[in-house]
């Protein structure tokens, strides 16, 4: 093939800009040129299509060698057909042979398989919506010791406010002043409860008394224990129950 055939074509009205990497091969590119311009595939304007094909593959050096060769081979075929159109040959029985016939047959064949591939893809998509046993695999939960404190201050305060709202307001007019509530008591209470189970709901720590003072001191006890790494405080989402967990070291000791 001459260098002139591969030289970039000056942009004209029918210069067709395409991104070469998008195409699976020369047949794909050729079909694109034909189908996107409403060209009759049984009467391909070979001159125009060849010019567009050559213009499109000026980017061919961007492709790897094998793929580049495939596009260049097609370019050669197109140029040969174009030449043969000028000098029609006759077969033995005198009929005029269309030099485009073999190319058209290949294009149609390729197009049909491309359509078959599309139907396969559709079947694949439908099939992927049905799942067999074993598709879902529960990932192992990370070990507790590696888990940082999940709770943020804002969440803790949300919980306290929620709790405070639920606690009975004292009757107006008189107040019963209980003895002061000490944090150490609450710490012992919480640790005691955690002896029996791995986790305890914060509401359960407070419920025997149910006053605001007990709730506040219990919460402070929880936070103090968390600071000392004795417990882990966890709330799945705002307004969800607040849970106090025994830390791993406590597990082992128990």
């Amino acid at each position: 093939m001459s260098d002139a055939a591969l030289a970039p074509h000056p942009s004209g009205p029918d210069l067709y800009q395409v991104e070469l990497e998008r195409f699976q091969g020369p047949l794909d590119l050729l079909l694109h040129l034909i189908r996107n311009q409403d060209v009759d595939i049984f009467d391909i304007p070979i001159s125009r299509i060849t010019r567009q094909f050559l213009a499109a593959i000026t980017q061919v050096e961007r492709l790897e060698l094998e793929r580049a060769g495939e596009f260049l081979e097609m370019a050669a075929t197109l140029v040969r057909i174009k030449a043969q159109m000028l000098f029609p040959r006759r077969t033995d029985d005198g009929e005029e042979e269309d030099p485009r016939a073999e190319l058209v047959r290949r294009l149609l064949e390729y197009e049909h398989f491309r359509e078959a591939a599309r139907l396969l893809e559709e079947a694949e998509r439908n099939r992927s919506r049905l799942r067999e046993r074993g598709y879902v695999e529960v990932r192992p939960a990370p070990p507790l010791a590696d888990v940082p404190l999940h709770t943020e201050w804002s969440e803790v305060w949300e919980a306290v406010r929620g709790l405070a709202a639920r606690l009975a307001e004292p009757e107006p007019g008189y107040r019963f002043l209980g003895r002061p509530v000490r944090m150490e008591e609450k710490i012992e209470l919480i640790l005691g409860m955690l002896q029996e189970s791995r986790r305890v709901e914060f509401a359960a720590v407070v419920s025997p008394w149910g006053t605001r003072m007990h709730a506040v001191v219990s919460l402070l006890a929880c936070l103090e224990l968390a600071k000392r790494s004795r417990v882990r405080v966890r709330q799945a989402e705002p307004f969800a129950p607040l849970w106090v967990y025994r830390r791993r070291a406590e597990d082992e000791a128990a």
């Binding site: 139907l119 396969l120 893809e121 998509r125 992927s128």
Partner: peptide
């Protein structure tokens, strides 16, 4: 899912 070249080849 399979790639386009794979689907095309499988169809053939």
């Amino acid at each position: 899912r399979l790639s386009s070249p794979a689907l095309e080849t499988l169809a053939i």
